[in-house]
Structure formats: C-alpha cells, structure tokens
C-alpha cells in the first residue's frame, strides 16, 4: 500500500505538469492540441541526451521543457499562420517529432542509470546525500522536490491567468470574436498558449525520464488520454467552479489517476488493459451528459465538462 501511495504521488506530480498543460489548451483555450503526444517523449529525449553529453541535469531538464515549447510553437505557427486545422497541425508536429527524437538520441532509447539525475542534484541543494539515504528517504525527497515544483507551476499559472495577458487567453477560449473586437490578436494568443502548455508537457517528459532513468521514443503513447482523464477526474471531484479550484483539482486529479493505476498494478490487474480502460472511462465521462440519465444530473455534468467536451467535439447537438 505504501508503494501505491509513493508511486501515485511521484507519477501523479510528474504528470501533473502535463495535466496543467492539457488543461490550458483543451479546457481553457478550447484547442484540442495533439502535439503533446510527441512533446512528452521529446522533453525526455532532449533531457536524456543533454545529460549524456555532460550537461548539468537541471539545465538538461530545462532544455527538455524548452524543446516542448518549440514543438508547441511549431503547431501554433502551422495553425495560426498557415491555417492548418488545429488537430492536423498537432498530429503533423507529433509525427515529425518522432524523427527529431531519433536524430537527437541517435537510437530509440537512452538509459541514464550511470548518470546523476536531476533529483539527486536537487537533493544536494538541500544538503542531502544520495549515498547516505535509504530508498524510502530518497522517494520522500523526490516527492517533496516535485511537490514544490508543481506547486510553483500551479501558482505561477494561476497568477498568469489573472493578468491582462492571461485574461485574453481565457477569453479566446470563451468567446474569440468578442476578445478580437476588443483589439486582441487571437492568433498570437493561441500561439502563446500552445508554447506555454507544451513547455509544461516537455518539462513533464524531462522529469519522467529523470525519475525512471531512461528516455524512450515510445513513452508518449497514450499520455494525452491519461492527461485528459486526470483533467476530468480533477474537474469532477474537486470542482470546476473557479479557476483556482480547477488548477488545483487537475493536479490532484493527476495524483488520483496515477494512484489508481499504481493500485491496479499492485492488485495484479493486467497492465495491458489499462489504456483501454482509461480510454473507455474518458469516453464515458464525455458522453455521460448526452445519455440523458436523469435531467438534473446531466445538466450539472454538462456545465462541468462543457468546455472540454466542446473542444473534443462530443457536445450535445
């Protein structure tokens, strides 16, 4: 049980960055950004390669995050400047990233077990020495570092979305015509949001590779659906009433979702079925409002998941 909690927290916090990014594009901007399936392993590949090349792991993680931002910019430019459909733009970038990863790493995966990780470096900052710590202490320290980072990202994002610039992002998702009529270039708003969101996803991937000790071109498979599941869990359980609740809820949703996966593994449930189960759960959550199971109930669900279903095209016609 202890392991389930530790795993859930570790994974949940790492993927929490990604959930925040997905929340930003899918839910707040209303832009179904599929780039993230490529951005996540890209962040890992770049960070891993940088570490192998002798770059400090902290800077390597930052490079991984930045590479995500570049991928987001690619999708954003394709969509806003070249007028490519938003879903297709994301798929094109994600597909191209595959080549980029293979070129960057020179092979499909990079093991990092022989190198210092970002987490041991960060622990060093607090005067902790890896060689004198038990596995449990290491795990708790890792979780603490991740917690501080996620908290910082959550607070930063919450602050940003309440600035003049942040408001234009939310308004672009809520009523694009209106904010354009107030003098805002919504193409730039979308581009900016995609860069921020994919930076978060790149960071998530970079941290995942530092935590698990390797990067692999295939590690992005299905991460988007998992992130959407986290957003849905967060929004349903922790409320989507206010922006602050939503941001916090999504991180908690990510932790809860990853804990459930860890619990499933612990109970020896067949791991190969997890992606199918997740996909079905997401499908169910998105279509539940349309199934008309009791009117009052369905209305509530629609409002909670309104924007997400809007961007995913599952809204009631």
């Amino acid at each position: 049980m202890e392991n389930v909690i530790i795993n859930g927290l570790q994974q949940g916090l790492i993927y929490g960055f990604m959930a925040l990014g997905v929340l930003l594009t899918f839910r707040i901007l209303g832009f179904p950004d599929l780039t993230v399936e490529g951005t996540f392993p890209l962040g890992a590949a770049v960070a891993a390669t940088a570490v192998v090349k002798g770059i400090d792991p902290t800077i390597a993680v930052l490079l991984g995050a930045a590479s995500g931002g570049v991928a987001g910019a690619a999708t954003g430019l394709m969509h806003t400047r070249l007028k490519v459909n938003n879903i297709l733009a994301g798929i094109l970038t994600a597909s191209a990233i595959y080549t980029v990863m293979l070129r960057v790493m020179g092979r499909p995966n990079t093991p990092l077990l022989a190198y210092d990780s970002f987490f041991t470096k960060a622990m060093g900052l607090f005067g902790l020495n890896e060689s004198q710590m038990s596995l449990f202490e290491m795990q708790v320290a890792t979780i603490s570092i991740l917690f501080i980072m996620v908290l910082a990202a959550r607070l930063l994002l919450g602050w940003f979305l309440k600035t003049d610039m942040g408001l234009t992002i939310r308004a672009t998702g809520s009523n694009e015509k209106m904010i354009r009529a107030l003098g805002v270039n919504t193409e730039n708003t979308k581009l900016l949001t995609l860069v921020i969101a994919n930076t978060l996803v790149g960071l998530s991937g970079a941290l995942a590779c530092q935590n698990q000790g390797f990067a692999d071109v295939g590690m992005g498979f299905g991460v988007l659906v998992a992130a959407i599941a986290s957003v849905i869990v967060g929004e349903m359980l922790f409320g989507g009433r206010s922006l602050s609740m939503l941001l916090t809820g999504v991180v908690l949703g990510s932790i809860l979702y990853r804990s459930l996966l860890a619990l499933g593994l612990r109970l020896n449930l067949p791991a190969e079925d997890f992606k199918m189960v997740t996909a079905l759960l997401v499908l169910l959550a998105l279509t539940l409002p349309n199934l008309k199971l009791g009117k009052a109930n369905s209305k509530k669900k629609t409002s909670m998941l309104g924007s997400l279903t809007r961007s995913l095209g599952a809204e009631k016609q």
Binding site: L167, R170, G173, S174, N175, M178, L182, G183, V184
Partner: peptide, 29 residues
C-alpha cells in the same frame, strides 16, 4: 452572447475592455 465572455466575471470582462488599445502585459487584471 456575442459581446461578452460568459465564463468570465463581470469585472474580468470590464478589465479586458478597459485595456482596449493598450499593451496587455503581466499586471493583475
């Protein structure tokens, strides 16, 4: 429905309108 953002509060809508023609930076709206 067209001239206001329904998910946002009255004061947020006003803040966006207030910034018409100005640089929208990182100050609290």
């Amino acid at each position: 429905m067209a001239s206001t953002a329904s998910d946002m509060t009255i004061e947020e809508n006003l803040a966006m309108a207030y910034m018409r023609g100005r640089r929208r930076g990182l100050l609290r709206a």
